[in-house]
Design a protein around this nucleic acid. Structure first.
Lengths: 231, 231
DNA sequence: CCAAAAGTGTTTAGTGTACACCCATGC
DNA sequence: GCATGGGTGTACACTAAACACTTTTGG
């Protein structure tokens, strides 16, 4: 006999804009928490699971083709996380490549995750979880593909990693590590240098645009199996 | 205006018993799915979040002191995953050290995860997710502490890893890797050899009994920071 | 020629696997 | 002594960080 509760889905959609990691929020026009900024989302529909629901709700805010990766973060269920009726939330992380600028409704805006405005309910906590998840997965998976344009230079990619990780990243080592793991591949093209000159940069591409774990640890690996990421 | 739905929590409690990874299940006495085996769990209470709820529900089935680690796996929300009312489930992974044998009610039993009996609803999928989560975390965290007794020999620990991972593990390398990461420490004691003789094994202990990531990859690490696990 | 930006080479450190070998016990 | 199981030493392969150096452009 489960108690009747509502269920909503919420999405922390992250994108690197202007060299900062930003999140898409909309400003509530009604109480409770009128004027505060909230994550896009809404009620779970009767004929959908939470994954379908979050994609449907996102489609109402942004051009979904821009969202290259969506994954579940977890459940937020503090009894009074929202005033009034009991409402359990399933939170998601969404990622948008840096070269798209999806049209969004007038009450929505991007905000740097480091300097959030006044947020509604427990949404700041969800944004923090999303940022943590992104940080962790950037280093042991190929998740960078979801933040980067289809083609890019290594220094552009480095800037994305710097914004998302929050600490300096060497372009030299980034290129070498990702290439060795078989995550990056050169297209053979080069990009034109900027106004100050400099050697033209080689253009790279992610070899896959689906999540893959690239840094499986050794204790886990069955004996005799060489790490095959490099092939 | 969220639709009214029920919310339940479910726990896949895993333990290595008789050199096999097993899960605690109870046999349903009522329709639907009468006679099939189900995960322990139940409805989310009005004044608890899902973490509190799963601990409360587990306390009704097993001695909770035996459960050394609980973590959220995710939401299962297919519209008709349970017949009748809409019911969303938050699934958890729980781990019990191999040296405890908690008292359980008569309708519950441990089953090897490789040979599950007929299971209720989507519970087999949850068990599979739990096993996957355990496998992954064993290799890049110190999660072994949650499967092992407080003190143990390396070969006993090896047997736990073999059961959980499902592939051979070298005791030599397991010891070296975990020691180097600062996860294991010798107590100075030795265990008595078996009837067939053999050198007495040194007794080890996990240095921490809380989850810690031990294999942070390098790209993630800020420059100038040495991996400090070994200290 | 110089500054700027990109990319390569090389050194050093660390990690995990494999395997040979030595150690401590029961019989 | 010998079988048995436990533990160490060592060699090898691979990974990544740091940094010097070269390459290619614009002015």
């Amino acid at each position: 006999m489960p108690a009747a509760t509502g269920h909503e889905v919420l999405a922390a959609v992250l994108q690197v804009r202007a060299d900062e990691l930003q999140v898409l929020l909309w400003q509530r026009g009604m109480d409770p928490d009128r004027g505060r900024w909230a994550l896009p989302g809404g009620a779970l529909g009767a004929d959908e699971d939470v994954e379908e629901s979050v994609r449907r709700q996102l489609a109402e805010k942004v051009d979904v083709r821009g969202v290259t990766h969506v994954e579940q973060l977890g459940v937020f269920s503090a009894p009074h996380r929202v005033p009034g009726v009991r409402l359990v939330a399933t939170a998601f992380l969404g990622l948008v490549p840096s070269d798209v600028d999806p049209a969004v409704p007038p009450d929505t805006a991007w905000h740097p995750v480091d300097r959030l405005p006044a947020t509604a309910f427990d949404h700041a906590e969800i944004v923090e979880d999303a940022r943590e998840r992104l940080r962790a997965k950037l280093s042991y998976t190929n998740l960078g593909f979801a933040l980067a344009p289809r083609e890019f230079t290594v220094s552009a990619l480095r800037d994305l990693y710097v914004a998302a990780l929050g600490h300096p990243v060497s372009a030299t080592n980034l290129q070498r590590v990702l290439t060795r793991r078989g995550v990056l591949a050169a297209t053979g093209e080069t990009a034109a240098p900027g106004p100050a000159g400099g050697r033209p940069a080689a253009v790279f591409r992610f070899t896959e645009r689906a999540l893959r774990v690239t840094d499986a640890s050794a204790v886990l690996r069955p004996p005799g199996v060489r790490d095959s990421a490099g092939e």
